[in-house]
Structures are given as C-alpha cells and as structure tokens.
C-alpha cells in the first residue's frame, strides 16, 4: 500500500520540478510525520529535502527524485531526533514543540485506542529502528532499498527491524490485560 500510497514518482513521470512537488508532497509529508511524529518538524524536513532536490534537479529528473528526497528526509529525521535529544530540557523550542504535539497530535486527528498504544510504542523507538519500520511497512521498501536509504548494511536493517518488532511486541503485550496471570499465580501457589 505504501509504495502505492506514496505514489513513487519516477523522473520520466514528471517534467518539471513543480509537478514533482505537487505529486510527491503528500506522500513525503506522511513519511516525514511517521518518522518524527511532529507535523511542523516534518513540514520543515520536507522543505529541506525539496530544496536539495531542486539544486540537483537536472541530474535527478531522469532518475528517481522521490527516492532521493525520501533518503534526505529519513536521514534528516534521524539527525533531527538526535539534535532534539541534545536540546536542553525546558528550552523554549522544546516546550513549544511538546505543547504543539500534545494539543494537535502528529496526525491532526483523533486516533483509536489501539492506534494510541501503537503510536506511543513507535515514538519510544530509537530513530533508526523507527525509520526501518516506516520504510518497511509504510513505504514498502525491500531490505536492500532500506539499507541503501539509510546507508547501512542489510544485516543491520534486519537487526533494527527485529529489535523494533520485539520492542513493539513487548509494549503491546505489557499494555494488554492479562487474564491468565491470576491462573498462573494460583498454580504458583
């Protein structure tokens, strides 16, 4: 769904940069939001990516400019998270960011209870693990493509994915009520 939903745009499909922006802004923005869980930061990342693509448009136009833009966004998102982590606690930027996220939410809409749990679990993941999940289950990229996008080996992609899935599984099972726990306790007695 994601490759379709992201609507991968090849160089031959668009003739001008304006068309490229029109065709890819939505999918790239969604990818960015899933990566950083912050709409405003995501918009800025996409803008930076477009600026870089525009600089190389002549060379990229015949290839796959969307893949290039996505690569920029993913790497900027990982760096952004690192930068945010280094911000001093209580700085104005951080407070504003947290306030904006808390009030509007990343997706600007209500989410179900299960989505809320999953969101929480995804937010808690390290940036690279989350990026691997987004590229795998939203962009439908292969392990090889993910490795190329992130600039890491396939083995590292696999290990990131496995750790992320394990963390999600743990989070989901920890949040679920455990009816069997009492029984286990009775057995224990």
């Amino acid at each position: 769904m994601s490759a379709l939903s992201t609507g991968e745009v090849r160089g031959g499909d668009v003739t001008t940069f304006e068309e490229f922006v029109t065709a890819t802004a939505g999918p790239l923005l969604r990818t960015a939001v899933f990566l950083v869980y912050d709409r405003h930061v995501a918009e800025d990342l996409v803008q930076l990516a477009y600026e870089r693509v525009a600089r190389r448009w002549r060379r990229l136009a015949s290839g796959n400019p969307e893949a290039y833009a996505r690569k920029i966004i993913v790497n900027l998102a990982i760096d952004e998270r690192r930068r945010r982590r280094d911000l001093p606690v209580g700085s104005v930027t951080e407070v504003e960011r947290l306030a904006g996220t808390a009030s509007a939410g990343p997706f600007c809409g209500p989410a179900g209870a299960a989505d809320g749990e999953l969101d929480e679990a995804l937010r808690a993941l390290p940036a690279k693990q989350r990026a691997v999940l987004v590229l795998r289950y939203w962009c439908d990229l292969s392990e090889q493509d993910i490795a190329e996008t992130l600039g890491i080996s396939r083995g590292t992609v696999k290990s990131h994915a496995a750790r992320a899935m394990a963390a999600l599984r743990e989070h989901m099972t920890a949040d679920k009520p455990r009816p069997a726990a009492k029984g286990d306790g009775a057995h224990g007695r």
């Binding site: 994601s2 923005l29 939001v33 709409r39 990343p106 600007c108 989505d115 999953l118």
Partner: peptide, 17 residues
C-alpha cells in the same frame, strides 16, 4: 504485528495532507 503496523500507517496517512 506487521498487519497492525500497515493498518496503523494507512489510517494515519488519511489524516495527513
């Protein structure tokens, strides 16, 4: 979990424009 993730992203994407 994979199905849940795909579904989660699909539904979330509908809200991002």
């Amino acid at each position: 979990l994979e199905a849940l993730l795909r579904d989660h992203y699909r539904r979330a994407a509908e809200e991002i424009h």
